[in-house]
Design a protein around this nucleic acid. Structure first.
Lengths: 248, 248
DNA sequence: CAGTGGTCTAGACCACGGC
DNA sequence: CCGTGGTCTAGACCACTGG
C-alpha cells in the first residue's frame, strides 16, 4: 500500500496484497506460529479471489519462509520471530540499516568518472573507452568503520551522480528517480586478507581478514550496469539465509 | 526422468519436465544466451500444455537464473555458462563434489549417540533427555583437509546410522532410504577464529580463520531434525548466489 | 496495430491426510 | 469418506513492446 494524492490505494496486484496482508499478520503473530492458515478455498472467499490467486500469494509466503505447505493438511505458519530477516536477496545498505534500526553513517570517500582497466573490461564485458562512475563509500557504526563499498556504474545508464545521492541511497535514486528496474544480480562471497585500501579506511583492530562480496548487477532488460565490491570486517559480517529444498 | 521396471517414464509433473527440457537446452547452448525463447503460446503448442503450465516452468527458469522475462518482448536466455552453479540452496556435500568433478574424500571422525548440552537444547528446542546422533566428518581434497562438518540429528527421526552411511551421503540416506522429505533450512554464515578442534582436524597453514555455516534443517512437516555446523578453511570457501530483486 | 508477457478466473481431476 | 493442497486447463482482460 502506498500513499498518493492523499488517498490510500492498493495499486499492487491482488496476490501481492494478499501476501502482504498475510505476512504482516504472521509477523505480528496475529497468525501465530504452528497454527494452520485457513484453507485455500476459505482464503479465496475471504479475499474474494480465485484459488489460483490465493495459491500465488501462498507460494510467495512459502518462498520467504512464512509458511510450510503440507498436502492433505494445510499451510502451517512458521516461527519467523527470531529469524534475522531478509539479509539475503538484493538488499541495499540503507534498507538493511533501517531494518535493524541501528545508527549507521555513510561516508563518500571517492566519486569520479573513469575508464575501465583491463580487469574491469573483462569482468563487465566493456569497451575500453566506456565511461564509468567509481564510487567508494565507507559505513560506520558505533565509531567503527566496518564496511567499504566500491561501486562501478555505467555512465550510459546513470548519466548523473552526486556525493549527496551516494550518501543517501544509490538504489533509491536508481529505482525511483531514474526509474530503472533492477532485475537480478550474481553474487560471490569469499574471505581475503585485508589490503592497503582496507587498512586505510576500515577500523581493523586485530582482525586482518575481510569478507568480500562481489556482485554483478543487471537491469530488468538483462543489461549489466554495475559491479560492486563490498568489503566487510570479518568479525562484523553475518549472512542469514532461508533455503528451501528443491525437489525436481 | 527415472528408470522403473525397465520403462523410461517421466513421472514428474508436466511443468517440471518442461523446465528440465528447457534448462538442459540452455545449459547445452542449444538455446544460446541472448536469444529469445519461443513465446508462451508457441511453447504451449510445442509441449501441448496450457499457457499457465508453461508459465510455471518459465517461473522456475527465471528463479534459477536461466532466463529473464521482459513484458511485451519475451523471455531472454541468460548467460549461464561461466556461472558456478547452485552452491546456494540446500545442497549436500556429495552433490557438490559430483558437480565440480574433483576428487574429494570424506572421513568420519566421530559417530556417537549423546544427550544435548544446554546450548543445543536451546538451539534445537529439545528436552534434555532426548537422544541425538553426533557426527563429525572431515572433507579432504588434494591432500588438504579443508572442511569440518559437525552434525547433530534427532534419534527419533533417524533411528539408525553407521559410519558407512555418513561416509557415503547422509542426505541420500535420509531422503531415499528413510524416505524423509527435507523441507527447508535456516542458515547463517559467519567468520571466526579457528578453535582447538579446527586445528586438530583441518589443514591450517598460515590461515587462522574459518568460515562457519550453521544450519537448522527442518522436514517437510516443519519438524526440526538436524543442526549442522560446517567449518571451512577461510581461503577455500566460496559462496555463489543468484538473486532476483523482489518488487513487492 | 499485433504480439508479447502479467494477472485473474472457474472448473476439473488427482494425491494425500485424518477421521 | 471428506477436506486438504497439487496440477492442469481454457479463456478472459490488461500492460507493454515494437513496427
Amino acid at each position: 500500500m502506498k500513499q498518493t494524492r492523499n488517498v490510500t490505494i492498493m495499486h499492487e496486484n491482488k496476490f501481492i496484497n494478499i501476501y502482504q496482508d498475510l505476512s504482516s499478520k504472521i509477523r505480528r503473530a496475529i497468525l501465530p506460529a504452528g497454527q494452520l492458515l485457513p484453507s485455500e478455498n476459505e482464503l479465496g472467499d475471504q479475499y474474494r479471489a480465485s484459488r489460483e490467486t490465493i495459491r500465488k500469494a501462498l507460494a510467495l509466503l512459502s518462498r520467504n519462509g512464512y509458511i510450510q505447505k503440507i498436502q492433505g493438511k494445510g499451510s502451517v505458519v512458521l516461527d519467523v520471530s527470531r529469524f534475522d530477516f531478509p539479509v539475503s536477496g538484493l538488499t541495499s545498505f540503507r534498507e538493511l540499516a533501517e531494518h535493524t534500526g541501528e545508527q549507521w553513517k555513510t561516508t563518500v570517500r571517492q566519486l569520479i568518472l573513469m575508464k575501465p582497466d583491463k580487469k574491469l573490461q573483462q569482468l563487465m564485458n566493456l569497451e575500453e573507452d566506456q565511461n564509468l562512475w567509481k564510487v567508494i563509500r565507507s559505513r560506520t557504526v558505533g565509531g567503527e568503520t566496518v564496511i567499504l563499498d566500491k561501486d562501478f556504474l555505467l555512465l550510459d545508464t546513470v548519466p548523473m551522480l552526486t556525493a549527496d545521492i551516494c550518501e543517501h541511497s544509490l538504489y533509491d535514486y536508481i529505482e525511483n528517480e531514474l526509474n530503472l528496474k533492477i532485475g537480478f544480480a550474481k553474487k560471490q562471497i569469499t574471505v581475503e586478507e585485508a589490503n592497503e585500501e582496507d587498512r586505510q579506511y576500515l577500523t581493523l583492530s586485530t582482525v586482518s581478514s575481510v569478507v568480500v562480496v562481489r556482485s554483478l548487477v543487471y537491469l530488468d532488460n538483462t543489461q549489466l550496469f554495475q559491479f560492486t565490491e563490498s568489503r566487510h570486517r570479518a568479525d562484523k559480517f553475518r549472512f542469514v539465509d532461508f533455503a528451501r529444498r528443491e525437489h525436481l
